[in-house]
Amino acid sequence: MAAMFSQNPLMNGPNYSISDAPKEDAPEGARQHRFDPYTDNGGSTLAIAGDDFAVLAGDTRLTSGYSINSRHHPKLFKIGGTTADQKDATIVLSVVGFAADGEALKERLDTICKMYRYRHGKPMSVKACAQRLSTILYQKRFFPYYAHAILGGLDEEGKGAVYSYDPVGSYEREQCRAGGAAASLIMPFLDNQVNFKNQYTPNSGEGHALQERERRPLTRGEVEVLVKDAFDGAVERHIEVGDGLQIMVITQNGIEEVLLPLKKD
């Protein structure tokens, strides 16, 4: 007990000024690793598929705890271009969660897509890339990449395609998906505004007879407004989201990228 209050570092073990101070020892007998290989670097992403386009967006803040490490750390990456500048890429990957794993995941998928291009003389389809990404994630099933990945592109018919993943590789093609710190704030908004959930045609019936509002594909202009509104809302209510908004729009003519300011507080 006396050692608890002692100022002697030899008895207490050293004290640390850096943030990754070791935690208390595990209960007696149980030896466990004190090093935690994961952290959460905050941030949020979202993706919406349109009729002939797909939009991906992510904020550019990188946090650890209450600190902002960087105000410009992009979460969206062009994948599988011929060269390092990715000028002729047709697929976009967004990763959010643990930044180091996200970076590692992006680099692996990119090299695999590049190898595919060199071997087959054509770029990988989004469908194939999506399946491959799932395999990459599942290969690390027992030491996962701690990241929420969303893949976007155009499918074989030229329709917008968005695939979303969990950290161990379960995936699904969807109309829209939000990921990361503010996913729980953005996703219900998208359900309502993209898939018209909980919207009914007025005076169309009583109770269960009430007609749902008919779904229609959104235009590019509508989607871009939704993306900005979603992030403005998330910035207001989540401390790990902010600084900059990176948007990529994938169309038949390639990938357009814009960077917009978000609140920096």
């Binding site: 000024s17 943030s19 994961y38 960087s70 643990f98 930044a99 970076e103």
Partner: peptide, 21 residues
Amino acid sequence: SVDLRGTTFSSPSLATGFGAM
């Protein structure tokens, strides 16, 4: 910057440890 977990980032100014605060 790079840290013990391999997290990397870049910024016009950077500081580690107490300097970050």
